[in-house]
Design a binder for these strands. Structure first.
Lengths: 252, 252
DNA sequence: CGGGTTCTTGACTAGTTTCAAGCAAAGTGG
DNA sequence: CCACTTTGCTTGAAACTAGTCAAGAACCCG
């Protein structure tokens, strides 16, 4: 299955060989659960950067888990203003809200080449009735997502531009770290400054200037899509608050 | 059970006589479900205005549903800045996140005298394994909550002070309406301007001035704790977007 | 009738957006 | 392989928005 100006699917990942499964922070499946999830997964979807595979207002027939790549959830106002709500990384679930309520209230766009596991909304009930443990996990993931947005809301509402930017970068870094994308303090960052601006609720120009100030502090480096954490403590200092990483978590 | 400088519990509401149950927008229980929820409810809690019955950082042993009154979820920064995340009205659930993750990441405070149904976190697993339908409802509620915060985030990030304020008032009004608290366009509003300011991510002074401008538009009236919707269309016009009411919804 | 909280208002300051332009790097097509 | 276009980044100046400070008025409660 292909979306956008996609290239062909490069093979299918069977659940028992799921690369995410190795991550120690993720809860292990029982054999029964694994068998269920294996048949629950109906397809694998490859999405090109810039393509929105879920759209506000559209009915959602599927539910997805990110296998690899970055995506972001966003909402648009009529006049084109965009607010990015959150980012999704490998092991994150997207589209649950649409699966439950039928109609999506936000859109989701791929930020990098993205691979998704596709689950049919129609079988969600099956999951709930046969595997309470998985149902529990899904609720956990929903609550976790809420938690992340809560933090984002505090960030927008109550922190200054500099704190806010520092906090967001810290947040993204920590999540990337959890997803195993960081290699000795360095990571490929797929965002443009416009993405950050739309996440932070600031103008592009002001985001640029704030970023400059932040770079001047020597706490981080960010050039040519490569982000480097130089002084974590200093960044936390600027942000005024630490982003706590999460230990155990489920995924489906 | 009493919290804050509470007065004694004025009776206990058995689930089969739950006053919320009458509301047509709420999904009806099967007899089995009702029986389960009845024993799942372990207590009723009365909280006085201004008291926080759930606190950021504390372990949560319980999960609550609002029976009557208003509450709000919030987070504080070290230096005292406060961000209100969302409000809870009758039939809304609070503390789910704490029940799932153990530790609360936000606090919840009563805005009016508040009556809550108390459910033990320990029996949540019971619910998931025996009543997938209720598990489904809980997930639905979690997703709904996320949706509301998403909207709030867009509001803070991408709307001007005037639009933002108009949108919030519209939002609160619609939710109060759903909860059956509105009587011919009029409702008791328990917030101070400080509450609105902390919700909107603006200073108190600026909120006051923005509110003035809004009142000058004649779309609404708000005096002595009484809010009145005069011209809904005009308010929507100012907000730039309509707040869609929700039809069917579950509750526990 | 105090004393506290909430609401108002004006003046001043700081923070942010908008506008306008230029530059660099990457991608496109002849 | 070289214009040419596009996209993303950068900068300064001007205009506007929002925050802070300060103080007084209105209201509420005991």
């Amino acid at each position: 299955m292909i979306v956008g100006n996609g290239r062909p699917t490069s093979g299918y990942t069977p659940c028992e060989m799921c690369p995410l499964r190795k991550r120690p922070s993720l809860r292990a499946f029982t054999p029964d659960e694994l068998a269920f999830v294996k048949q629950f997964k109906m397809d694998e979807l490859h999405v090109d950067p810039g393509a929105s595979f879920l759209r506000e207002g559209a009915a959602a027939e599927h539910l997805y888990t990110v296998l690899s790549g970055w995506a972001f959830r966003y909402k648009m106002l009529d006049d084109g203003r965009r607010q990015i709500l959150n980012y999704a990384l490998p092991a994150d679930m997207v589209g649950l809200q649409g699966a439950l309520m039928r109609e999506m209230e936000h859109s989701v766009e791929a930020l990098t080449p993205l691979v998704l596991c596709v689950f049919p909304r129609a079988k969600l009930w099956d999951l709930y009735s046969k595997f309470p443990s998985l149902a529990f996990d899904i609720t956990w993931l929903a609550a976790r997502e809420e938690q992340l947005i809560d933090e984002n809301l505090v960030n927008l509402g109550r922190r200054s531009a500099l704190e806010r930017t520092a906090y967001l970068l810290q947040h993204l870094y920590v999540r990337a770290e959890e997803a195993g994308l960081v290699k000795n303090g360095t990571i490929q960052f797929p965002f443009t400054q416009q993405h950050l601006a739309d996440t932070l609720g600031m103008s592009l120009v002001h985001t640029n200037k704030t970023l400059k100030r932040l770079l001047a502090s020597k706490a981080i480096r960010w050039k040519d899509r490569v982000f480097e954490m130089i002084d974590r403590t200093a960044l936390t200092e600027i942000a005024g608050d630490e982003v706590a990483p999460r230990q155990g978590r489920p995924f489906i």
